[in-house]
Design a protein around this nucleic acid. Structure first.
Lengths: 351, 351
DNA sequence: TCGATCTGCTGAAAGCATTTAGCATAGTCA
DNA sequence: TGACTATGCTAAATGCTTTCAGCAGATCGA
């Protein structure tokens, strides 16, 4: 019965033309309507609770006030979905909606998602990725603005990435400041990932940041455990190997929190305590970082902020474009302690 | 230059009317066009790569092939965002798009999100929740179909919930089967949450399932630690209290994985080993359940499946409506062992 | 042979907001 | 006074698809 009021209804109620109503409600600059007319129109619109039909508007003006978000997988860590929150926040501020699609890393799915977005005439697309890497995107239609979030690509206009070099530097500096300069181990260097941007566009920078901080302090890592897949069990194994090697480590830089979790387990089995015997710092600020005992000091991957920045680049006409680096804030917890005086070789590395 | 082809372009190329093209491409039953005409139209559409303009179509038929997803917070656990994947999967199968909005639990945000969805003329709405609870939803427009996922409400047409009673029963049964009948402790009973559906609509069922399994086996819990907020530190404290009380527990049912994580930490500090000294089972299948050593046996909250079911209820004309219970599959890992023969009071409860 | 029915197809309206072009009226300047 | 501009407002076209109503011509039944 009661269908939505249209522009014509408002016009009828205000006793003016549709043109007048449209001009007033969109407050077009050139229009010169009397203050009374403007008032009547606003009143009528409010009384009828008029809201423009977006389909009709899109049809006319060719824009939809909708942004598409296409990501590989949002479901793998909770922080990746924080990216959605960042996107939504900014989109909401600009009165835009967000349409989502997931590709599960299949190029065919990507093409399909993209086609669906183009069909639906979104005004722009954010391509998100769980891990910061080079995405192979198909050619985009001329007019469509695109930004990658936590990713780069050859075709998108702008890219938003975490500031990994800085984060690596700061995390290493924390251990150096605590006096661990001569006892630092690195758990999780990944040469393959460093060299292939399709695996990671930023891990190399993270590692370089760590190296640079050490080099500036005149230090060198005592041990570097290399492995490509950063899960707790790998961190566990690698940490055991480092301890078994006899290297007198007092501080570990773990390349992510899951690896650090494995390191905690390995240290515990060896009877070493965090941070009294060994300090640990890490990256990601995953869920578990706060759950560990003691809490893990880690540099956060700023998914939410990357989402915000990416969406701003699409919607904010004067947002800077190109590659944007978003800082990775360090979450200070309790996993770093000053290096014990007798750090060199004092505690047992054997079972 | 090259704008999208329209229906008129296809009609011109096929040498037929727009009406004919529309009828053929939507294969309307009543239309009786010659096979040649049908072929010519299909050819023309393919050659021009014609895709209908969704705005024009929505304007005409009043539907948008779009479903809205409004949730309180998708960003808190990774599994909650699995719900999005389930939704997207099914929506995709039905060629529908998904618009998302988040409310952060503010009623004002909820009203705004809902208004935005209604404005955009979505065909239906899924209201998702991180925790299974009663949502206070505003009155919905007559024609708008709505389903709650991992939630209930007084206004939505259908609700999808995890099958908590069954899960509680099965988890308890696992410990009973391993012979822990006389040594079971429950960590995390939450009377407040059980009684207030706005906090939880299902925790009561979970607990009832546990109780029922014990009762059927003629057992009673040796200890029940009550606390409302299920974080690792609370599980840690509660487990210590239970151990300190002297109750000879050999099996713990933790009410979620984070609590179980705290229990692991407490047991470890007391020198008790999982599962040799104490078996543990839990709920959620959170990220950490697989990371713990030994792996935690737990009943998964089926977020993805709930998303699938919820979207099916909206899009599938013959999906059953009303309250749908989705099974919670048990992830068997290594945290349960047969009860040691000397289970009663044999291991130390003191520091 | 005439009317009815079927076949194959089309014109035009409808759905709603935006925008161009332009119409009266009143005021301004020379 | 006459030409011109400014003011306040509107009719009609436009964007693209769907759909109602209906038109010729062929076929059929009586």
């Amino acid at each position: 019965m009661n269908k939505r009021p249209t522009l014509a209804d408002v016009a009828a109620r205000a006793g003016l033309s549709k043109t007048a109503v449209s001009l007033v409600l969109n407050d077009r600059p050139g229009s010169r309507l009397s203050p009374e007319a403007v008032q009547r129109i606003h009143d009528a619109a409010r009384e009828l609770n008029y809201r423009p039909n977006p389909a009709a508007r899109s049809l006319r003006i060719g824009r939809t006030n909708t942004i598409g978000f296409i990501s590989d997988e949002v479901t793998v860590t909770r922080y990746a979905s924080a990216m959605i929150r960042g996107l939504l926040d900014v989109a909401d501020e600009h009165d835009h909606g967000v349409l989502i699609a997931e590709t599960g890393n299949h190029p065919k799915q990507l093409a399909k998602a993209l086609e669906s977005m183009v069909d639906r005439q979104v005004d722009g697309i954010v391509f998100g990725s769980l891990t910061a890497r080079l995405l192979d995107l198909p050619e985009l239609p001329e007019h469509l603005r695109a930004v990658t979030a936590n990713a780069t690509s050859t075709t998108a206009h702008s890219a938003v990435l975490p500031s990994e070099h800085e984060a690596g530097h700061r995390i290493a500096q924390l251990l150096l400041d605590a006096g661990h300069g001569s006892g630092i181990g690195i758990i999780g260097h990944a040469p393959l990932a460093c060299s292939d941007p399709r695996i990671s566009a930023t891990i190399g920078r993270r590692f370089a940041g760590i190296r640079d901080a050490l080099a500036e302090a005149g230090a060198e890592p005592l041990a570097v455990a290399e492995f490509e897949i950063w899960e707790p069990w790998n961190g566990y194994d690698a940490t055991k190997e480092v301890l078994d090697s006899g290297a007198p480590v007092t501080g570990l830089v773990c390349l992510n929190d899951r690896v650090a979790f494995g390191a905690y387990q390995a240290l515990q089995e060896r009877g070493l305590r965090v941070p009294d015997d060994v300090s640990i710092a890490s990256f990601d600020d995953d869920e578990i970082a706060a759950y560990l005992r003691p809490g893990l000091t880690t540099a956060r991957l700023p998914y939410e902020e990357m989402g915000r920045v990416a969406m701003s680049q699409l919607l904010d006409p004067d947002a800077p474009t190109g590659e944007r680096l978003v800082p990775m804030p360090v979450q200070l917890r309790d996993s770093i302690a000053p290096c014990p005086a007798d750090s060199h070789g004092a505690h047992g590395f054997r079972p």
